[in-house]
Design a protein around this nucleic acid. Structure first.
Lengths: 207, 207
DNA sequence: GACGATACGGAGACAGTCTCCGTATGGTCA
DNA sequence: TGACCATACGGAGACTGTCTCCGTATCGTC
């Protein structure tokens, strides 16, 4: 609350400046080193004391949440674009899941805290996640109504699976096609349909 | 090497005793608290100094590897049983993946180090994993020859997916059916086959 | 320009991993 | 059985990372 200074009371300018600067530094830091780099190192890099860092963001999760909130807008824009441009509900869902995959890849190691957040809804990250689950549910619902997605699938599981795929991806061989394989696996499974007719796109993982 | 004392040279009896005792304690400890509990706490609980613990197992991963090695036999037995009793290659693969899922659930948090191990084959855990990937490949190969599994799926990805599902499971709602959902998702995907014929077992996640 | 509220910095408390070395113990050989 | 040496033990402590507390500096206002 009152992050921009437009809230209950105006933020002191040095505080505001520090906050912004810390976020910039942390963004780059996490992008470079992944989310498990030392907090004190971030403080040092931002030229502030650890106390200042922790006053702004009481722990790593809070810092992460603040960083992700900035990216939220992009993802929401993407959601709107898909909704506008894609009439096939199955393709729309697939595109949305791709967007989620990309979003969760912003920082190395991000899936872990997100999964953890899903278990305790007190977390600032959990709220963000919940929003995306709701969106997933909208796309999924449409696909299910059109008979394009199985009726027993639930949005939360689909979101979790997307996280899981992203998590696994960081162990995938860099030079091979594991990344796409995992998403495709999620879409079509490893099992061939009993009647022998392969679902669309199941012949080869790419696209 | 020479773990039982039958190797190059006989192990001193106190060392042997300590090793066994540490393993017993660690097994229980990890089962209770998950794999991230403090190493020194394990040492204390085993009644030895931290030095002793680390002399036997240079780090958490090594300790974990030693613990898992004991369970390996059970899993191999399971593999043999499946191979003996299940003639349908698709069902056999599914059962093997279930067995893997169960194995990886031995300790809370286990999927993480296993995934990490997959990226650097110097790790003691990596060797264990590699063995299971090979087994997975055998089951997968059979299923693919029978046309029961998609040809583009690779064993390593299937193994990784199993880890990922186990990883995600610990964020699944305890009271709902998420656990099965995730495995089913991996087997059949969320997408309904284009021709409308549902693959076996896709109607509902259980079994 | 002075004063009170607010935020800053960094020393340090605390927890965890892992090492080093003086000491104790086990195994062997006379 | 006793002595000797290789081997293993224990725990103090070095090091790293998280997070707190409080004396000090800065901001905004009157």
């Amino acid at each position: 609350m009152d992050e921009t200074g437009t809230g209950t009371r105006r933020m002191r300018t040095d505080k505001q400046r520090n906050r912004v600067h810390i976020l910039e530094v942390a963004e780059q830091f996490f992008a470079e080193q992944g989310i498990s780099g030392s907090m004190d190192a971030i403080a040092k890099r931002a030229g502030v004391g650890p106390g200042t860092l922790y006053r702004h963001f009481p722990n790593r999760e809070a810092l992460l949440a603040a960083l992700l909130q900035a990216r939220d807008e992009q993802l929401e824009a993407r959601r709107d674009a898909i909704q506008r441009e894609e009439s096939d509900s199955s393709a729309a869902l697939a595109q949305w899941l791709d967007a989620l995959s990309e979003w969760v890849t912003a920082f190395d190691g991000l899936p872990e805290p997100l999964r953890a957040a899903l278990t305790q809804d007190t977390s600032p990250l959990a709220i963000t996640c919940q929003g995306f689950i709701t969106t997933t549910d909208r796309f999924l619902g449409a696909a299910q109504r059109d008979g394009d997605a199985k009726s027993w699938v639930r949005a939360r599981d689909l979101f979790l699976s997307t996280l899981a795929a992203a998590w696994a991806r960081s162990a995938a061989l860099a030079d091979e096609s594991s990344p796409e394989s995992l998403s495709t696996l999620m879409r079509s499974g490893w099992q061939t349909p009993v009647d022998g007719t392969a679902p669309e796109g199941s012949r080869t993982p790419q696209t």
